[in-house]
C-alpha cells in the first residue's frame, strides 16, 4: 500500500507551529469539558441519571480507564519494540511480510469483535480485556519499529559498518536513535487506539468509562451517554496530546 497510514507518521506539526501549538489542544479539551459540566449541570437529572452522573462514579471510572490504558500501553511497548527489533535484525523476509500484512489486516479486524471473541473463548473480565487491547495495539508499534529501523538511510549504516561497528553497535548507536521518531509515532497511535477501544472492555466487565456509556444507552438516557462519551473523547485527545509532547521532547536533536 502506498498510502501513508493514519497517524503513524512522526508529528511534524509540532515543529512548524512551535510551542504555542502544543498548548492549543489542552485548551480545547478544557473548554470542551467546561461546556460538558455546564450542560450536564443545567439538566434536570432523574434519579437514575443522578446515580450515574456524579463526581464519585465518574472519578472511579476515569481512574479505571486510565489504569487499563497504562497497563495495556506498557505491555504493548514491552512486547512490540523488542519484537520489531528482532524481526529487523533477522532480516527475515517472511517475518517482515507477516508483520506488515498483519498490520494492514489488523486495521480491518473490528475491535469489538476481537474483544467479544476473546471473552467467549477465555472468560470475561479485565484480564481478557487487557489481552484484546494489547493484541490490537501491538501491531502499529511493531510495524513502526520495523519501518523506522529500515527507514534509516543505508548510507549511514554503511558508514557505521565501514568504521568497524558491529551489527549490534550499529543498531544501538545509529539505527535505533534515528528510528525513535517513527517508533514514538507508533506508540502514540497505540496509546490513542487503546484509550479509544478501552470503553469496549466494559462490555465484558472490564470496567472503565465504557460502563457509563453503555448504561446510558441501555437505559435510554442520552445525558449519561453524552457525558461519558465526551469524557472518553477528552481522554483520547489528552492521550494524543501527551504522545505529541513525548514525540517533540524525545526526538533526537540534530534531526
Amino acid at each position: 500500500m502506498t498510502a501513508p497510514v493514519t497517524a503513524q507518521r512522526p508529528a511534524r506539526a509540532a515543529r512548524g507551529t512551535g510551542r504555542a501549538g502544543l498548548l492549543v489542544r489542552p485548551a480545547l479539551i478544557g473548554a470542551g469539558l467546561l461546556v460538558l459540566w455546564w450542560w450536564a449541570g443545567s439538566q434536570q437529572l432523574d434519579s437514575i441519571e443522578a446515580r450515574n452522573v456524579n463526581g464519585e462514579v465518574i472519578g472511579s471510572q476515569v481512574l479505571e480507564h486510565v489504569e487499563l490504558t497504562l497497563i495495556c500501553t506498557a505491555l504493548t511497548i514491552a512486547i512490540a519494540i523488542p519484537l520489531g527489533i528482532a524481526v529487523s535484525l533477522s532480516r527475515s523476509r517472511a517475518g517482515r511480510l507477516v508483520v506488515l500484512s498483519l498490520g494492514n489486516l489488523g486495521q480491518a479486524i473490528p475491535s469489538i469483535g476481537l474483544i467479544v471473541l476473546l471473552a467467549l473463548v477465555i472468560s470475561i473480565g479485565v484480564g481478557t480485556a487487557v489481552i484484546a487491547l494489547v493484541a490490537y495495539a501491538v501491531l502499529p508499534v511493531l510495524r513502526n519499529t520495523m519501518v523506522g529501523i529500515e527507514g534509516v538511510d543505508p548510507v549511514l549504516t554503511e558508514a557505521a559498518r565501514g568504521m568497524g561497528l558491529s551489527r549490534l553497535a550499529v543498531l544501538f548507536t545509529v539505527e535505533l536513535p534515528l528510528a525513535v521518531p517513527v517508533i514514538l509515532a507508533g506508540v502514540r497511535t497505540a496509546l490513542v487506539l487503546t484509550v479509544a477501544s478501552a470503553p469496549l472492555a466494559a462490555l465484558i466487565d472490564g470496567g472503565g468509562l465504557g460502563e457509563g456509556l453503555f448504561t446510558g444507552l441501555t437505559l435510554n438516557r442520552p445525558v449519561i451517554s453524552v457525558t461519558f462519551g465526551v469524557l472518553v473523547a477528552a481522554l483520547a485527545l489528552l492521550a494524543d496530546w501527551l504522545g505529541l509532547l513525548a514525540e517533540t521532547s524525545l526526538r533526537p536533536k540534530g534531526i
Binding site: 568504521m163 568497524g164 545509529v174 540534530g254 534531526i255
Partner: peptide, 16 residues
C-alpha cells in the same frame, strides 16, 4: 575495519 578510514560521497555523518 577499525584500522581503515572510510570516506564516502554521501558523507554519512550521523545526524543525531
Amino acid at each position: 575495519r577499525r584500522d581503515i578510514g572510510y570516506v564516502i560521497q554521501q558523507i554519512g555523518l550521523f545526524p543525531h
